[in-house]
Write a protein that binds this DNA or RNA. Structure first.
Length: 877
RNA sequence: GCGGACGUGGCGGAACAGGUAGACGCAAGGGACUUAAAAUCCCUCGACCUUCAAGUCGUGCGGGUUCGAUUCCCGCCGUCCGCACCA
């Protein structure tokens, strides 16, 4: 018997078991159908899944189930991005080993994901902290090294002198270590880098080929790579001061045209010249140390107050030997960009202007905006960076900016300083090489041994993996690998003499830069990637994840794939053909009288015509409803997916996460929204039952003429929903799919209301039966358990998860008559119902015959009538 | 600071490619059913004006292009994301 209410507690585990037993989602390598690889960014095993995961994986699952129904051989795997700092923090706080903590979290989260009913091929699961994964990553590192894609060089890190550890930028708060509170220092360390800059041009150019990526992500990456064409100019230093042997200062500029507007030179606090001068200048040393306390993040550097230190040195203007410019050390000049030195032109660069105004250096406008009077054009607080003609610039006067750039480049290339040209044209990138060394335990060990005699020696591949030691302690400050009693002491693989292991581990972004390739054959114990298999599955057809990864993870993966290609592992450059970045899950915040945050579970919310009010469940006291913010532990505005799945079922949670908000935007989690989704689950169960009953009712013999309209209307509603849902899944507009399903349900409910159940003609019965199947198949990708229960109830013998997507009959949705909106002077005045193929003259005549049009014209003669076929009529009076 | 996005009823949002603004859902108000409640079903629901019919205004703000602008352009305001050792 068909129960009145759908029981998700029974149905969800039941159908999950059926799919498992039938291997419904296990991808068969031998399957010859066209492949489709859908992948969601794999989770960090932080402890429990959160609503963001539910949203992300619900979206991917809709695509996977839909594509499977469309006849593709779908690959939809899952794994764990399992190395990272939180495991070490947990180790310090709760004395749990990072591995134990991580694998326990994975067990919990795997069970949670399984309760969502995702159509994943779990047989491919791995964690990046498995030695069987990082072994291959170490091999890849060695291959990249052999191919010249790895470099070793100095770079600066945030150093916490108390905790004896390197700090991430997010761990530097107001210049102090987050745990110790000690002022942060900077240290120069020798570190390993992937030379991503070698691919800068290709990574930039190939962005144009990524047609199924969001435009904004491509733009962000292009700006991140930051290609610029400019000039490297060598300035002579004026005095032969005892303080330095340096004779010149090299700057990189994209605005050589403004050279006659120069007022000062500025070098980074990290510039070698600044370091040299500081050795004999205590005040400068203090200034530099002060700059360093802000940490290494670009945001901190650029947002701070612009400050400088006058070195007393002067640089000579390249076009005038008698013109010298003071040389400052300035905190806003980045060592990583260009040469770490600039010439300042205050009139045409806001940062330079702020600096010049602060130190009374003045400015000379050299670009006059179109229409401005060159005699009167002055700059005070706002720099001008727009187009114009050169002024106050001697031989450049009157030229455009581009002409002036060319002229300066030409002259300086021809001019010599010492024995070399004074300038050269240079293409510069903002992109820097990817530093992968981390002074931490819980990461993939870098397979290198340092030998006094042989230098940095690669660990031979047959000795991989270099395993992390298990017996480590987090009681002491510093890197556990470094102070482990025995781990790092090994024989040099080259000479056999005493040597030490590299104790740095890899950035966890390395782990996630090739996992998508490993998923194609995770069973290969010999090699990281099985080339023909990877070539067949890659690129990922649809990749889905958070916008916060728009730059780093995606750029690193693009680089890594090029590296894999150049080391012979696969034959493609771009790993992700389609990318979708989804928004966050946000929730209201609640604060009690004491100002303490309350969790949604601790609050009752009441609503009536007067608005919404909240009360504490504990004592009934008033609670302030605060801003809607990203779910976070600190605001206590989280909702646990487990609780939701327990109380409402996975289908309800999935449906709600896909409803309402466009997937790329944030979605607000509300109790009312979940309730609405839960109501829809029961409503669908009822409607499918009613459709089934109507379809199998004893027949009536109403004439075709009377019933044809009703049957056709039902079929039209079903097929037009079928077309629209298909199109919207293809474009990942799940919120619209949900709306279409509601619309179809509404029209089917109406049609069911109108029938005389004692006498339903055969044609209408068939239409109801067809509509029932279509409706179930439409929501099956989103609410798969409910769909299976309905599908079985409709008498199908095998799961809807294995059924083919129904074919749509487009002829049903074309109408003979259409309704055209009619405007007069752009304002809508009427609707015109007219035959679909009426010609222009007929439409014009019918339009002018309308009462409302005549009224709006008020006796005036129409000047023009615009008819946009199938769309609109506009009468211009 | 730099880079990127977003802004539509009480709320989330829809509107194909410049062509009916508000689909669909939520909340709210009214009603039916019920001893009662839950569940379910029906009606109303941008603002103003109005007996009705109709009308006026309305997509963050100010301009512009167009027969017609939520959509395109310019300038503001506000919110969010990224900034290289969080993942």
């Amino acid at each position: 018997m068909r129960p009145e209410r759908y029981n998700f507690r029974e149905a969800e585990p039941k159908w999950q078991q059926v799919w498992r037993a039938r291997h419904t989602f296990k991808t068969q390598e031998s399957d010859a159908r066209q492949k489709y690889y859908v992948l969601e960014m794999f989770p960090y095993p932080s402890g429990r899944i959160h609503m963001g995961h539910v949203r992300n994986y619900a979206m991917g699952d809709v695509v996977a189930r839909y594509k499977r129904a469309r006849g593709f051989n779908v690959l939809h795997p899952m794994g764990w991005d399992a190395f990272g700092m939180p495991a070490e923090n947990a180790a310090m706080q709760s004395k749990t080993h990072p591995a134990k903590w991580t694998y326990a979290n994975i067990d919990t989260m795997r069970a949670q994901l399984k309760s969502m009913g995702l159509s994943l091929d779990w047989s491919r699961e791995f964690a990046t902290c498995d030695p069987s994964y990082y072994k291959h990553q170490q091999a890849l590192f060695l291959d990249f090294l052999g191919r010249g894609l790895v470099a070793r060089k100095q770079s600066r890190v945030n150093w916490d002198p108390v905790d004896q550890t390197v700090l991430a930028n997010e761990q530097v708060i107001d210049g102090r270590g987050w745990r110790s509170g000690a002022p942060v220092e900077q240290r120069e360390l020798t570190q390993w880098f992937f030379t991503i800059t070698k691919y800068a041009d290709d990574l930039l150019a190939a962005l144009d080929t990524l047609e199924r990526w969001p435009e904004k992500v491509r733009l962000m990456q292009a700006n991140w790579i930051g290609r610029s064409e400019g000039l490297l100019v060598r300035f002579a230093l004026a005095e032969q001061s005892k303080r330095t042997d340096a004779r010149e200062l090299d700057v990189y500029t994209t605005r050589p045209d403004t050279l006659f507007g120069a007022k000062f030179m500025a070098i980074s606090p990290e510039h070698p010249l600044a370091r040299e001068l500081a050795q004999h200048d205590g005040a400068l040393a203090e200034f530099i140390a002060d700059c360093e306390r802000r940490g290494t993040s670009e945001a901190a550097i650029e947002m701070g107050e612009k400050r400088g230190y006058d070195t007393g040195l002067h640089a000579v203007h390249p076009f005038d030997a008698n013109w010298t410019l003071p040389v400052y050390v300035a905190n806003f000049v980045l060592m990583e960009y260009g040469t770490g030195a600039i010439f300042g032109c205050p009139a045409h660069d806001q940062r330079d202007l702020d600096f010049a105004n602060k130190y009374g250096l003045g400015n000379i406008p050299v670009v006059c905006p179109p229409g401005a009077d060159p005699e009167k054009f002055v700059i005070t607080d706002t720099a001008y960076d727009g187009p114009g003609r050169m002024i106050n610039s001697r031989f450049l006067d009157g030229m455009t900016i581009d002409e002036a750039k060319q002229e300066v480049a030409r002259r300086l290339e021809a001019q010599t300083l010492g024995n070399a040209p004074q300038a050269e044209r240079k293409i510069n990138y903002r992109l820097r090489d990817w530093g992968i060394s981390r002074q931490r335990y819980w990461g993939c060990p870098i397979p290198i041994v340092h030998c006094d005699k042989c230098g940095a020696v690669p660990v031979p591949k047959d000795q991989l993996p270099v395993r992390l030691p298990d017996d480590v302690s987090f009681d002491r400050p510093g890197n556990p690998l470094d102070h482990h009693a025995t781990w790092k002491h090994v024989a040099c693989p080259a000479c056999g003499g005493p040597a030490t292991r590299e104790t740095d581990t890899m950035d966890t972004f390395v782990d996630s830069s090739w996992y998508f390739a490993r998923f194609t054959d995770p069973w290969n114990a010999e090699a990281p990637i099985t080339k023909p298999v990877a070539n067949r599955w890659l690129p990922v057809d649809q990749y889905i994840g958070g916008i916060e990864h728009a730059i780093l993870h995606l750029l690193y993966s693009r680089f890594f794939t090029r590296g894999l290609r150049d080391t012979g592992y696969l034959d493609l450059a771009e790993p992700f053909a389609g990318l979708f970045t989804q928004g966050m899950v946000v929730h209201e915040t609640y604060r009690g009288a004491s100002g303490a945050w309350l969790s949604p579970a601790e609050v009752d919310v009441e609503a009536d015509a007067g608005g919404r009010r909240a009360f504490a469940k504990a004592d009934g006291s008033a609670v302030e409803i605060g801003a809607i913010e990203k779910m976070s532990k600190s605001r206590r505005n989280t909702v646990d997916p487990d609780d939701i799945i327990q109380s409402f079922g996975a289908d309800t949670a999935r449906w709600f996460m896909l409803s309402d908000s466009p997937p790329e935007r944030d979605v607000i989690w509300t109790e009312e929204g979940v309730q609405g989704a839960a109501r829809m689950v029961q409503r669908l169960w009822r409607v499918v039952g009613e459709l089934k009953n109507a379809a199998s009712a004893s027949g009536g013999n109403g004439a075709d003429g009377e019933t044809g309209g009703a049957a056709r209307a039902v079929r039209k509603a079903a097929h037009s929903a079928l077309i629209k849902v298909g199109e919207d899944i293809e474009r990942l507009r799940f919120n619209r799919c949900v709306a279409h399903i509601y619309e179809l349900t509404n029209s089917l409910t109406e049609a069911l209301d109108e029938i005389d159940s004692a006498a339903i003609p055969a044609e209408l019965r068939a239409a109801f039966r067809e509509a029932a199947d279509i409706l179930v198949q439409l929501f099956a990708p989103m609410m798969p358990h409910l769909a299976e229960e309905c599908w079985a109830d409709l008498g199908h013998g095998s799961p809807v998860a294995e059924a083919a997507w129904p074919a749509a009959d487009r002829s049903l949705v074309i109408e003979d008559m259409l309704s055209l909106p009619v405007q007069v002077n752009g304002k809508k005045r009427a609707d015109l119902v007219i035959e679909r193929n009426a010609d222009q003259a007929a439409i014009e005549a019918a339009t002018l015959a309308l009462d409302s049009v005549q009224r709006a014209l008020a006796g005036k003669a129409p000047k023009k009538i615009i008819v946009v076929p199938q769309r609109i009529v506009n009468v211009v009076a």
